[in-house]
Design a binder for these strands. Structure first.
Lengths: 192, 192
DNA sequence: GTCTATACGTAGATAGAC
DNA sequence: GTCTATCTACGTATAGAC
């Protein structure tokens, strides 16, 4: 664990404000006030507001990409890979709910890195879809509409940032487990 | 079907822009350009930018509230009520994917109507939770973690606005049906 | 109902003192 | 590394002509 630099602190504080009001509505003066300094002083640590957004989003996006690649390498069943992906989302989101808000809602304000981000996201969805498709092929997953399944699961995982802060009684392990249960088996009571 | 007024057109166009860039990043000049007029001219039809946001969000929020109340009145099973709620979300979202983006992401920029909106949202979640709780009590729904179920289903439904425009091959009826299938029964292949 | 002109505030960012 | 002072651009909104 490296120690947090002043730049890191600014980025972390910015992410918090971006979650509350969105990237565009947060001014450098807002951020400075929250940091206990003047706006001009921020520029001794960062080059621009845009750079802050880039740091927040790209580092998270790359974390998801490498996490999923790692999961794909294993020889587990596709259902177990899916459980690992759920755990990946819970873990990354638990560590940084503020940043996840920007990843979900402020990516369109990226400038130079926009295309790169869109590429990462698109590849991620393709890999995710692949797990589901292989699961269907191997008779682990129902032969239903893949896009509906993908959308449903991914929407839930992408919304975790909104919900984890409100449910701190569940630790990440419990949450992953219960979430897997619901996403994979549904909520329907089978007749015994 | 009443005919669309110029004000309606402005609101619809604004919703589209708000979805693309967020409320704060859209300027009255952007909106005017998209409408083919000058910014000052917008003010002959609307009183402020804030009013536009209010119209978009509150009308949708009230539509959800009255829709859910209607569903609650019926004598159906709780699983069938849940299916009706899913259909409600699909129908409202299909008609106005742009507005749904503001409902989800720009509500914090409401001023006078913020408290009212938060009340509607909170009540809606309570009613939704109630359907699940009654379902568990009546042995229709598994006796799992209600909050995880609520979060998972509601997150998916609230994200529909992002996904419906990309999947126009599915009509609302098919989509509701397939979504109910996945949200209620999961994706797990049962061993026959 | 749309325009031009404009008021007034505030945005991101820089210069240079300490 | 933080400050004050400041630049330039652009934000919402109004006044008044056509």
């Amino acid at each position: 664990m490296k120690q947090e630099t002043r730049k890191d602190e600014i980025i972390r504080t910015a992410a918090k404000l971006f979650k509350e009001k969105g990237y565009s509505a947060v001014t450098m003066r807002d951020l400075a006030t929250e940091m206990g300094m003047k706006a001009a002083s921020l520029y001794n640590h960062i080059n621009s507001k845009q750079e802050i957004l880039k740091e927040i989003i790209i580092s998270l996006a790359e974390e998801f990409t490498s996490g999923l690649q790692e999961i794909q390498k294993s020889n587990k069943s596709n259902i177990d890979k899916l459980k690992d992906v759920i755990e990946l989302h819970v873990n990354i989101t638990s560590k940084n709910t503020y940043g996840m808000a920007s990843l979900n809602n402020n990516w369109m304000h990226l400038k130079e890195k926009l295309e790169y981000y869109l590429q990462l996201r698109s590849n991620y969805e393709d890999e995710f879809r692949n797990v589901l498709q292989q699961g269907v092929k191997n008779n682990e997953i129902i032969n239903g509409n893949i896009e509906v399944m993908l959308f449903s699961i991914l929407s839930t995982l992408r919304s975790l940032y909104l919900w984890i802060p409100k449910k701190e009684d569940l630790n990440p392990e419990e949450l992953s487990q219960k979430l897997s249960e619901v996403l994979i088996n549904g909520i329907n009571k089978k007749i015994d």
